[in-house]
Design a binder for these strands. Structure first.
Lengths: 352, 352
DNA sequence: GGTTGGCACTCTCTCCGCTTGAGTGCTAAG
DNA sequence: CTTAGCACTCAAGCGGAGAGAGTGCCAACC
């Protein structure tokens, strides 16, 4: 419905909208016609600008907090700005270095992601976000079992992409050390290269085969295997730097602060959102009312998938108030997600 | 210096101090002589109470926010209250049940501790705190090595108390699956029952022995073993429910909220403090200026050691503003730490 | 017809002074 | 020792005045 109008905006209106969004992002204050006129970019009087602004308001790009205040961008205003008016500011070499360094620290994927989230928060001065879902569709390279107690086994599954997950599970049978070694070898040999889902299906099919019903050892193996693939491997979600929102003027009063913190606490909702975002490939920007999660607190999210193109691993991004420096956030998130992907691909390579 | 005076406080002064502390904990407001007189517990006029209160202020137990306000307890006031005047309120059966249930969920220690922290936060309406230090002095039951990549090995160490720690390390040598199995068996057989520290010392001594210098396999074994015990196994610190402080009137303004959140973010300082607390056996209460960490924000900490008496595992407790219901927090933390200890001892038993 | 200056109007924010109320310390009498 | 009375202090709340920023509309101008 809006798309036609979007492109029909005359150049002057676009310039005015761009300027208002940029100034508002910089200052956080509503922008009035006088301020706009004095910025030097327009050879127009405040009165003329008022006319343009009134038009932009009518089109839904601007809004007034109250009658005698300047204008602030609406969700649609930001959206139009991002789609048509914004020019991304390139990262400084210092920022690029910080990111390159940040992702190359450590080799355990959890650590890398955790670092990435904290780094992102620091560089953006927003809340950093890194999400790695439980990957049931990833290819398994090996699966090992270690005795923790007689009926407690730690499973260690290594994915083809080098990701390691582990979990202590309780089992129906008792296993000796020897048995576990044999089972580890057998399952790894038999199922390497398959996804968790495929392994589960194969194991279940095996249960029904005649041989399995009479081979006690095979029964135990299958049972353990099924337990292993069914174990609740949690997704990882790192939400780092929540305190950064304390500085933002939009959360100056205690009430909205409270609301915001509580919202960030509800990680399930966030996970849900990020999971749907996983389907899309490029940089994604969600503004205010554009998603259930963001509309509650007028959040915006700038995020991008990371991992190899063939096998996306998760999402990385930032979350903050609608008023944020999109021109800087976009390349920041973009670069970090690419750096992460590169790092992971490297790992995959050296380990392959 | 204060101890003599503590016991010389006459009964009436003690009653007044107790009442002021209790009322202030309940209301958060400074308590005046009129309010105190009208509460019914004293057959005294406001004027008499003022005399008592002036004495208590002189002794350092009370303070005035400003001349024309009532009194609030000082750190010393709270300390005296806790040591001499407080009667712990017993837990309700509902609370006890919630705790018993809470600690019995799951069997992986990380999960249990995480749950405990969240539960504690919920029951106390304060910030829940659970700390498990890197235990270099715990006895090792088994040590396993799993190939993640050629030069990346995951170590899985099971402690005698059932605690499992694991870490992916990079190694100097390359290991085959077979070798790792052999090394796992050898090290577990050789070193089971020793502490991490003892194992390290033994391994280092072995390096110097002649045989090791000529046996390539033994060299690799020792190298891997040393890498394993030296790996940076992180301490776990769960700080749950930070949003609970948003409700507290003492953090109503944005400035102190900000300060408080930033303080809670500095986990290293907290770890440092909790590590020193580990030495003490019973319930510990730290008030405001009594420790470096708590004095910055006028926090108080109520914490207790958990784990078996012979081998303490970590600390569990709560952190919040100085004005908190100590009479309820004390038994709460006490009970939870005992429940946790029981749970862990049970695990230890069933696994032994 | 677009642009502009002028004007009346609106709304927020801040400052200032006033009052109120809670609370104190001191003193003198019971 | 207790208590009533009194003068004093201070924070908080209220209301009005004024400043300042900004708007919409209208008429004039190029």
């Amino acid at each position: 419905m809006a798309t036609r109008q979007d492109f029909e905006l005359d150049p002057r209106a676009r310039d005015v909208l761009r300027e208002i969004v940029m100034q508002h992002i910089a200052s956080g204050e509503p922008i009035g016609s006088r301020t706009l006129s004095k910025c030097g970019k327009f050879q127009l009087s405040p009165a003329s600008l008022r006319n343009v602004m009134a038009d932009l308001e009518e089109l839904g790009f601007l809004a007034q907090p109250h009658t005698s205040a300047g204008r602030i961008p609406t969700d649609r205003g930001y959206r139009f700005f991002i789609n048509h008016l914004m020019t991304s500011r390139a990262l400084s070499s210092r920022e690029r270095e910080a990111i390159d360094e940040g992702v190359s620290v450590g080799s355990e994927i959890d650590d890398v992601l955790h670092h990435a989230s904290a780094l992102l928060s620091k560089l953006s001065d927003q809340v950093g976000l890194v999400f790695m879902p439980t990957l049931l569709q990833f290819a398994v390279r090996s699966m090992d079992f270690i005795a923790v107690a007689e009926n407690k086994i730690m499973t260690v599954i290594v994915g083809a992409n080098g990701v390691v997950v582990n979990k202590v599970i309780e089992t129906r049978f008792l296993f000796t050390r020897d048995e576990l070694e044999k089972i580890s070898r057998y399952i790894t040999a038999e199922f390497a290269g398959l996804t968790m889902d495929a392994i589960r299906r194969r194991l279940i099919r095996m249960t029904e085969q005649e041989r399995a019903q009479h081979d006690a050892m095979l029964q135990k193996t299958i049972s353990l295997g099924i337990d292993a693939v069914n174990a609740p491997y949690e997704h990882d979600l790192y939400v780092e730097g929540a305190s950064s929102i304390l500085n933002k003027p939009e959360y100056a009063d205690a009430a909205s602060l409270r609301k915001t913190f509580l919202a960030l606490q509800e990680k399930e909702k966030l996970v849900e959102l990020l999971e749907t975002c996983l389907a899309e490939e490029g940089l994604q920007i969600l503004i205010g009312s554009e998603s259930d999660f963001t509309q509650i607190n007028n959040f915006s999210i700038v995020a991008r998938r990371y991992g190899s193109t063939s096998a996306p691993l998760g999402m990385v991004g930032i979350i903050g108030p609608m008023r944020m420096e999109y021109a800087r956030m976009a390349p920041l998130v973009d670069y970090l997600s690419r750096a992460l992907s590169r790092k992971i691909e490297e790992e995959e390579h050296t380990n392959g």
